[in-house]
């Protein structure tokens, strides 16, 4: 399988400014050296704690967030991450869908206007065919074409999310980053949207980078998972293996804190201070909360493990 997107050692920081003239005082190290790849036709997920930099990573991979260092390549060609033009050329192939379906559509544009804008911009179809094309796209996401003249506020969350999917489908991208696209929706609607996404993935030969904090969703949809903690990937591997044999203590902690119907099995709490992303420790970032910590953990753990499951930990679980 060829790698569609390859990211190497991506860093993306936010400046913290202060004082009268807004000098940069420190950085929020939101993404702190992440490498990942997405194969053609693959669904890859990124999970991790709230605020660990998942969304920032997603935005950075699309050039919507400044990348400080690192290299990116798409379809084997490397992208000049600091050049606006080189991103502009990728707009058609790389797309994103966001969590909150309520703010993802311009409230002043009809669905038709929202959907036709990118089609015209990328010259996908002629003006005369726009109506048909928009109707066709709505059908693809199982909505009625008659709905195209309505405004976003008359749709439910699930419907809006479908519309957002239709909008990016229109320009036929190769890779879609889905940032928490179902977490604002009801469980039953979630399942419908996920099913739709899987179906479209097959029929349109899409690759998906699925960002989520919901392990059940991630597990249901993806083959390969990256687990992030404080701006870094701590473990990656096939979902079956991560869920059954987590190697990294944080992955294990994630699994242990999932609530179940069984009242005798309370979710396990992670104890200990979380370091601030403005002031990360030089060693393993998880050390302050890790039960397996040892002397060595003061040094940054290197990538280890087999080919498909790898982890960044000095004392991996077995």
């Amino acid at each position: 399988m060829m790698n569609l997107l390859e990211a190497h050692d991506i860093e993306s920081y936010f400046d913290i400014r202060g004082g009268l003239f807004g000098r940069i005082q420190s950085y929020v190290k939101a993404v702190n050296g992440v490498s990942l790849n997405v194969g053609e036709g693959e669904i890859v997920s990124v999970v991790g704690e709230s605020g660990c930099g998942k969304s920032t990573l997603g935005l950075a991979l699309l050039g919507l967030q400044k990348i400080r260092s690192g290299s990116l390549s798409f379809q084997g060609e490397s992208i000049n991450v600091n050049d606006f033009k080189s991103w502009q050329g990728l707009r058609k192939d790389l797309q994103i869908i966001f969590q909150d379906p309520y703010t993802s559509l311009n409230p002043r544009l009809t669905i038709y206007e929202s959907l036709s804008e990118p089609l015209l911009l990328h010259g996908i179809c002629k003006k005369s065919e726009l109506k048909d094309k928009v109707g066709y796209l709505l059908e693809q996401v199982e909505l009625k074409p008659e709905m195209m003249d309505r405004f976003p506020h008359s749709f439910s969350g699930g419907q809006r999310q479908r519309i957002c999917i239709a909008r990016v489908l229109g320009i036929e991208p190769k890779l879609i980053v889905c940032d928490e696209i179902v977490s604002a929706l009801d469980v039953s609607v979630q399942a419908q949207i996920l099913e739709l996404l899987l179906k479209l993935k097959e029929s349109h030969n899409l690759s998906l980078l699925f960002i989520s904090h919901d392990l059940a969703v991630v597990r249901a949809i993806s083959r390969r998972i990256y687990v992030m903690y404080l701006g870094r990937v701590v473990e990656e591997g096939p979902s079956e293996m991560l869920f059954h044999q987590p190697k990294h203590p944080y992955t294990k902690a994630l699994l242990d804190s999932i609530p179940t119907l069984d009242r005798s099995r309370r979710p396990v709490l992670l104890e200990g201070e979380v370091p601030s992303p403005t002031n990360l420790p030089t060693g393993c970032a998880f050390a302050s909360r890790c039960k397996y910590k040892s002397e060595k953990c003061g040094e940054l753990p290197q990538r280890s493990g087999l080919d498909d499951q790898s982890y960044y930990c000095h004392n991996p679980l077995n």
Binding site: L62, L64, Q88, R91, T103, E117, P118, L121, H122, I171
Partner: peptide, 22 residues
């Protein structure tokens, strides 16, 4: 910071168009 502005950027709309239209 509304998502539809981010989406517009991701879709490749120009800054002026985003400013005036969205």
């Amino acid at each position: 910071n509304m998502n539809y502005i981010r989406v517009a950027r991701a879709l490749g709309l120009s800054k002026t168009r985003i400013f005036f239209k969205h």
